[in-house]
Each structure stands twice: as C-alpha cells, then as structure tokens.
Design a protein around this nucleic acid. Sequence first.
DNA 1: CTAGGATCCTGTCAGC
DNA 2: TGCTGACAGGATCCTA
Length: 334
Amino acid sequence: MPELPEAEVIRRGLDEVLPGRLIEGIEVLEARSFIGFNQDQMHQLVGMQVRKVQRRGKMLMIFLGTGISAVKPVAESKKKASFAGSQQLPPPEGSAEPGSTDSVQVPNDAVLLVHLRMTGQLVYRRAEPEDDKALFGGFPNASLIGELPDKSTRIIIALDNQDKLYFNDQRKFGYFKLVAEDRLSEDGFLAHLGPEPLADGFTWQDLRKALGRGSMSVKGALLDQQKLAGIGNIYADESLYRAAIDPRRSVSTLTPNNYKRLLASIIECLTLSIDAGGSTARNYVDAMGLRGEFLDLYAAVYGKDGQACPRCGRPIEKIRVAGRGTHYCPKCQK
DNA sequence: CTAGGATCCTGTCAGC
DNA sequence: TGCTGACAGGATCCTA
C-alpha cells in the first residue's frame, strides 16, 4: 500500500530530523523484520550518525556514517569500543581536535534500507510531546497516532536526543536491512529496480522503453518494479484512469499518445499525492480519518467499485488484472 | 517472455 | 452473536 508518494513523504519528514542524530540503541522485536540482523550489526549500528535520508522507488535509504562524534581520544575510544551497544555516546559537540585523534574504526559507511511493503509504517516520536509536528507515514491505521510500541511494532531505534523511530508492520512483509554503502548496488532489490518516474528529464519515450514491447498488460508492467520504480496497485489504477487507458491493454498496443498521457498521469498522481500527504498529514490525524480519508483524498477509482465514475457517471468496476484487484471505468478507459 | 498460482502475514468483513 | 473463510496485496519464487 505505501508506494512511492508515501515513501517520499516519509523521506522528507525524516530528512528534516534525522541527519546529525546518533543511533543510541536498537531494539528488534521481530527478528524477521530486520534481515540479517545479528550482534555484529547491532554493534555496528549503535553510535553511527545519520547523514541523509534518500529514496529509490518504494525503498527508503537511511545513510549512516561514523560521525564526527565517533572521533575520540584514544583512551576513551578503547574503553567505549569494548562496550559498544551499551554505552551512551557523547553528543556531536564533543568531537575531535585534529592531531590528537584516533578515530573509532567502523568498517564502512552503511545504509539502512527500509521497505514498508504492504502495511509498514515509520513513526517518529519526539521526547518532548508538546512538539506537535506530526512525523510518520506508511500504511494508514491507528498505530500512526496511538501509544507506541504496540502489537504491530517490530523495530525501535533510540536516538541521542531521546526521540524514537518506530517501525510498525502488521503483516510483517516489510523489512529493515543494513548494507555497507559501497555494496549498496549489490542489494537484490535495488540492483534490478527500474527508472524513477519522477526523475528530471524522464520522457514518454523513456516510459515506453521501460515498460517494454512485450505482450504484458500495461497494468502488470506498471506494477513491475524492475520495469518502473515506485508504482503500486493504487497509483497504477489511478494513473490508468486519468490516462483513460484500459489496464488490460498490452503495452505493445500503446501509441505514443497513450504513453504521453500515461506519463503525464503518473506524474500528476504521484506529485499530487506527495503534496497532499505532506500538507494534510496533521489534519488527517486530527480527523482520525485514517484509511477512509486517505483513499477518499487521493483516489478516483481505487476501492470505488460500484460508485459513479467522476467523468461519465458509469459505475466503476473491479476486475482482476495481473493477479491484482483492478478498478477502472469500462466506458472511459479504452 | 508471460501468465498464473502459491507464499509470507494478520486484520477485516461478508455470509451463514 | 460468533464462527469460518475469503480477501487484501509487494515482492519472490515456482510451474506451465
């Protein structure tokens, strides 16, 4: 459910608060939610500093470094090193006179990959509750605003300012994964990921090339992350509706005009949703709207089977395409 | 190359 | 009212 726009909204939020923060602790409540997590990774993570938060498709990438604060006098660093994971590290200010330094060696800069899949959410909770800036995103349910941790909480990251980052995931399909930065391209998902539809200079010809010339349905092709990054079931349906293209059409039958309309629709849907997600997050919480509001705000056809098509009034139908529930208007989409 | 199915998982909802 | 079964879907893997 969380797709490119949700990931991007979270990315922007986290990129406001995470860079510069040190990871003080990590708690993995559900082992399967953190791929390959072990003691070594725990020791590596604790004390690292967030550099930036980026995104590729639906994947969030939290870039970590040793941090200036990890540069300490020799004596202290030796002491701390043997207790990594259980020590409170000094604040960023307590750093480094060049010359008298000996940095704590953390093997590599690392990247914390986060994929929300179906029901994942990231919730940033401040230690000072009166600071009301809402910071969360992902699958819309009550865990976004309720007491945390709750029964869907899988991972908790504690930061040096006492704020916490919660990873909640009802269905446990989402995951964290720690990789060395210089081996980022070896990640199985990222290595085969298609191009970004919102990249500067992405043209309809690029879209045509990405979706291929085969006989696959256009809906199936849009959902294939190896062809195009970031589109999931909701935005595939919404984009095809806006572009007035039947989701069952084979990509080989699409005309240049179809591709132009489709790309314009994809960009519209994604950017509208990113803007709305960013600006309405707090209203959305205050209203306790959750899923219903969420879909009402962004969807013309998704989840609206039986309701009137906004363009022609005919009932939206739900069919199965590429193994997915697919909502479309049989009159408008050809 | 593509379609289709099963898989992972748990909350929700229709139907009896 | 309470139970059961179907359904939801992102990505992967398998078979046809």
